[in-house]
Amino acid sequence: EPELVFKVRVRTKDGRELEIEVSAEDLEKLLEALPDIEEVEIEEVEP
């Protein structure tokens, strides 16, 4: 069974934007590691 992958769009407080694809596990780590995120948009990517 393929692992869930999420497309994550992040905007930081200083206005930088970042778009990455991460696994569910990595997404959890990412959110814990970035306390200064202003906006996060997450969508599931079809395998």
Rank of each mutant, 00 (worst) to 15 (best):
L27K: 01
E21G: 02
G15N: 02
L31R: 04
R16V: 10
E19G: 02
E19P: 00
E39V: 15
P35Y: 13
E19C: 09
D14P: 01
I37S: 06
T12D: 03
V5G: 09
P2C: 12
L31E: 01
E3D: 10
P47V: 11
D26K: 07
E43S: 11
K13H: 05
E43Y: 13
A24Q: 08
K13N: 05
I37A: 10
K7E: 05
E19D: 06
A33P: 01
K7L: 06
E44T: 10
E17R: 11
G15S: 01
K29I: 05
K29P: 02
V22D: 00
E1S: 12
K7R: 10
D14C: 05
D26A: 08
E19N: 10
D26E: 11
E39I: 15
S23D: 04
A24L: 11
R16I: 09
L18V: 08
E43W: 15
E38S: 10
V10L: 10
P35H: 12
G15A: 01
E25D: 09
A33W: 12
R11L: 04
S23L: 07
V10H: 01
L27F: 05
P35N: 14
V8E: 04
L31I: 06
L18E: 03
L4T: 07
E39N: 09
L18C: 15
T12G: 04
E17K: 09
E43N: 08
R16M: 08
F6D: 11
A24D: 02
T12S: 03
L4A: 04
V40C: 15
D14G: 06
D36F: 07
E19T: 14
L4R: 12
K13G: 04
G15P: 00
E3P: 06
E38L: 13
D36S: 05
K29Y: 05
E3F: 04
R16C: 13
I42P: 02
E32L: 12
L18T: 04
L30C: 07
V10G: 02
I20P: 00
E28Y: 13
A33I: 09
E17N: 10
E43P: 03
L4V: 07
V22C: 11
V8H: 00
D36T: 04
E32D: 08
R9A: 02
R11T: 06
P2Q: 08
V22T: 04
V40T: 03
F6V: 15
D36V: 03
D14K: 03
E25K: 13
E44M: 13
A33Q: 08
E41F: 13
E21P: 02
K13A: 08
E21Q: 10
D14I: 01
L4W: 09
L4N: 05
D36C: 10
E19Y: 14
E32C: 15
F6C: 14
R11G: 01
E43K: 10
L18I: 11
E41G: 04
V45Y: 08
E39S: 14
V40S: 03
P2G: 10
I42G: 02
E32N: 12
S23N: 10
E25Y: 08
V5S: 12
L34C: 12
L30I: 08
K29W: 09
I42V: 07
E17M: 14
L4F: 11
E41D: 08
L4Y: 11
P35K: 15
E39F: 15
I20N: 00
L31A: 02
V45A: 07
V8S: 00
E28D: 09
S23Y: 08
E38N: 06
K13D: 02
E1P: 12
L27W: 05
E19F: 14
R9G: 00
L34W: 12
E1R: 14
I42N: 02
L34P: 01
D14V: 01
L27N: 00
I37Y: 14
E32W: 08
E41Q: 10
V22E: 00
E17V: 15
V10E: 00
P2A: 07
I37D: 06
P47I: 12
E44W: 11
L18W: 14
L30S: 02
E3T: 06
E17Y: 15
I42C: 13
E46W: 13
E25W: 06
E17I: 15
L34E: 03
T12L: 15
I37V: 10
L27P: 00
I37H: 10
I20A: 03
D26V: 05
E32G: 09
E41T: 13
E25R: 14
D14A: 04
E46Q: 12
E32Q: 12
L31H: 02
L30P: 00
P47A: 09
I20V: 07
I20Q: 02
V5D: 09
L31S: 01
G15E: 00
V45C: 09
G15W: 01
K13S: 06
L31F: 06
E43R: 12
K13R: 10
E38R: 06
V5W: 07
K29C: 07
E39M: 14
L27V: 03
R11V: 06
E46S: 12
L18H: 05
T12W: 14
E21A: 06
V40P: 02
V10W: 10
K29G: 06
E41K: 09
V22S: 02
A33Y: 09
I20G: 01
V45P: 06
E3G: 06
V5E: 05
T12Q: 04
K13M: 05
E21K: 09
K29F: 07
I42S: 02
E44Y: 11
P47D: 08
V45E: 05
E25S: 13
V5A: 08
K7W: 01
P35D: 14
R16Q: 09
E19S: 09
V45M: 11
V8A: 02
V45N: 05
E43C: 10
V40H: 03
G15I: 00
E3H: 06
G15L: 01
V5I: 15
T12H: 06
G15R: 02
L27I: 05
G15K: 02
E44K: 11
K7V: 10
V22L: 09
R11F: 02
P47R: 13
V5H: 15
E19H: 11
V40R: 02
L30M: 07
L30Q: 01
K13L: 06
E28K: 13
D14M: 03
E44I: 15
R11M: 03
S23H: 08
E19V: 14
S23M: 07
T12K: 03
P2I: 08
V8L: 02
L30E: 01
E1F: 13
E28A: 13
V10P: 00
R9M: 01
F6L: 15
L31C: 10
T12A: 04
E43I: 15
E32K: 12
D26M: 10
A24H: 06
E21R: 12
L30T: 04
E3Q: 06
V45D: 04
E38Y: 13
F6Y: 09
A24I: 08
T12M: 14
E1M: 11
F6H: 15
D36L: 05
V8M: 00
E38G: 08
K13P: 04
V8W: 00
E19W: 15
E25N: 11
G15Y: 01
V10S: 00
V10T: 01
E39P: 03
R9S: 03
A33H: 08
R9V: 06
P35R: 15
V40D: 02
V10Q: 00
P47N: 10
E25C: 10
S23E: 02
L4D: 03
D36M: 05
L30D: 00
E28W: 14
F6W: 03
L4H: 08
L27A: 01
I42L: 05
A24W: 13
L34R: 04
E1V: 11
A33T: 10
L18D: 01
R11D: 00
E44F: 13
L34G: 03
E32Y: 07
D36Y: 07
E41S: 12
E25I: 12
E28V: 12
E39A: 11
E41P: 02
T12Y: 14
I20F: 15
V40A: 04
G15F: 01
E1N: 14
E25T: 12
D36E: 08
P2R: 10
L30A: 03
R11P: 00
K13E: 03
D36Q: 05
R9Q: 01
V22A: 04
A33D: 08
S23I: 07
K13Q: 04
V8F: 01
E21W: 15
P35V: 14
V40N: 02
E38D: 10
I20T: 03
E41W: 15
E38A: 09
D26N: 08
L27M: 04
S23Q: 05
E3Y: 05
E25F: 09
K29T: 06
V22N: 00
P35C: 14
P47T: 11
R16W: 11
A24P: 06
P2E: 05
I42T: 03
E46V: 12
D14S: 06
E32P: 02
K7G: 02
E3K: 13
E43D: 05
F6P: 05
V8Q: 00
K7N: 05
R11E: 01
V8G: 01
E28R: 13
P2M: 06
E44L: 15
A24S: 07
E28N: 09
E43Q: 10
E21Y: 15
P47Q: 09
R16P: 01
P35I: 15
E1Q: 12
E1I: 11
V5F: 05
E3V: 06
L30W: 11
E3I: 04
E28S: 09
R16A: 06
E17D: 06
I37K: 04
E46N: 12
D36H: 06
L27R: 01
E41A: 07
V40W: 13
F6E: 13
E38H: 08
E17A: 08
I37Q: 04
E41I: 14
E38P: 03
A24F: 11
A33E: 08
E28F: 13
L34D: 04
L18M: 09
R11Y: 01
I37M: 06
P2K: 09
V22G: 04
K7A: 03
K29H: 05
A24E: 05
E1A: 12
V8R: 00
L27D: 00
E44S: 12
L31P: 00
D26P: 00
D36K: 03
L27T: 00
K13F: 02
A33M: 14
